[in-house]
Amino acid sequence: MKRVQVLDARGIARALERMAAEILEKVGDESLLYLVGVQTRGVPLARRLARLIAAKTGCEPTVGALDITLYRDDVGPWRAAHQQPLLRDTALPVKVDGRTVCLVDDVLYTGRTVRAALDTLMDYGRPQAIRLAVLVDRGHRELPIAADFVGRAVPTAASEDVQVRLKESDGEEGVWLAREEARG
């Protein structure tokens, strides 16, 4: 396995700083902003963005956590025998109705997770708008979905793996591109 670093801690910090500014600019009424992290790494990213926004506005936007497992399109017989993805917390401290929800996730890939997240969110109410912020967009979309805020676009091959590590969840910080060594 060969690992190439795409972003280091400072790179992540800079990317988030820029995304926070873009979000503020696009949302307009920041009192409506509701940052919802997709489990698992979207949650700490949403918290960081909230702090960055608070530093600019003096008012920290609401943060929530969303578990999309029960809305995935790959549960059931497509998965390994008897393996079901584990459920994680969904915590939306206030209602989403009328808010500008910004979904936050670490990597945007096929778009299927975002589709599931949109469906999940809709079952909780009727947001005024839903935006999408991702730290890394690695391409290869399988659904007509695009991010509004991107930390870094990383061109990848399908065989490659994008690994996001955050100190909150992984104890290290950075984004790597990993690929199997060619055999033979």
Binding site: V75, G76, P77, R79, A80, A81, H82, Q83, Q84, L87
Partner: peptide, 14 residues
């Protein structure tokens, strides 16, 4: 029901 629904087929890689 959710945990048992995990499919009984051939294991599929994630």
């Amino acid at each position: 029901l959710y945990l048992l629904a995990g499919g009984h087929g051939e294991p599929v890689a994630d």
